[in-house]
């Protein structure tokens, strides 16, 4: 198979970027998308040109490193699939493929197709955890978790932090990412003590990073490689609403007691 690749090349965060067109030949249908880029990079290296920088690691769709837009679709737009799991048999021989990095103010381009996603770490730092210092845990079966709750928590916790939700969102909003972590921790019995403070803190951190606001298009959930549902954003909103009015209620209750 043969492809024409239009790839966003940008040397550094400050440098201006532009599309550069490359041809690759000898691609087989069983190769993955990143293996196709490996072939291109080998050729570039042989020609003494800079290989295309792209982030990748596990190449089995779980580490969340890889990701860029292919023809305007995050991760190529196939259901539940990361770029590294995309097989070239999904593309037509001779096709032109446009590769563009995630674009968002909170995700500045580092080089070529690599962006800085450390904003996600800072959102987690604000409250995406259950405080359980080592040594303090009760027996594992002392905490009963109904199966449906455990399943919901797992579904939310499956997020790999790749950033496709932000990339695909017309508003560059990070609500699906934030909601996934909040739902994971907020539905579990272990997560209850910190539930509302966690919600307030993580939402505030998300806003401080400069992500946009959700308008419920559903693009995030459509490209999410782990198929995290849009519904979770609603759950996050509900918890935020409760968190805000609950504080009021508690202050009133404390004052009247």
């Amino acid at each position: 198979m043969k492809f024409t690749l239009r790839i966003w090349r940008q040397k550094s965060r400050e440098a201006p970027g532009k599309f550069v067109t490359y041809q690759v030949d000898g691609i087989t249908p069983d190769m993955s998308f990143l293996e196709m880029l490996d072939v291109l990079n080998e050729e570039l290296l042989a020609r003494g040109e800079d290989p295309v920088a792209f982030e990748h690691d596990c190449r089995e769709g779980i580490c969340g490193s890889c990701g860029f837009l292919i023809n305007g679709l995050a991760h190529g737009g196939r259901r539940g699939t990361t770029v590294c799991q995309l097989s070239m048999r999904f593309f037509k021989d001779g096709e032109t493929l446009t590769l563009e990095p995630w674009r968002a103010r909170a995700f500045p381009v580092v080089r070529d197709l690599i962006v800085d996603r450390s904003a996600f770490d800072r959102i987690i730092q604000a409250g995406g955890f259950i405080s359980a210092p080592v040594g303090s845990a009760p027996d594992a079966n002392a905490i009963l978790v109904p199966k449906d709750i455990a399943d919901t928590a797992f579904e939310a916790a499956a997020c790999i932090g790749c950033g496709a939700c932000v990339a695909a969102c017309p508003n560059a909003s990070a609500m699906l990412f934030t909601a996934a972590k909040l739902v994971h921790l907020n539905v579990l019995p272990q997560g209850q003590p910190q539930r509302y403070q966690r919600t307030l803190n993580m939402v505030a951190a998300m806003e401080a990073e400069g992500f946009g606001s959700c308008t419920n298009h559903g693009e995030c959930a459509a490209v999410c490689p782990k198929e995290i549902p849009l519904e979770f954003i609603g759950r996050m909103n509900r918890d935020l609403r409760r968190a805000i009015f609950r504080r009021r209620f508690e202050r009133w209750r404390d004052a009247t007691q």
Binding site: A106, N171, G212, S213, H217, G218
Partner: peptide
Amino acid sequence: LTRLSWQARPQEYHEWKGLASTFASRTM
């Protein structure tokens, strides 16, 4: 919120396709 969202993506994509958004949602 619109201003915030516009600021959140200073550089637009050269090519972007929707999978889930509708004409209605994009014209809000």
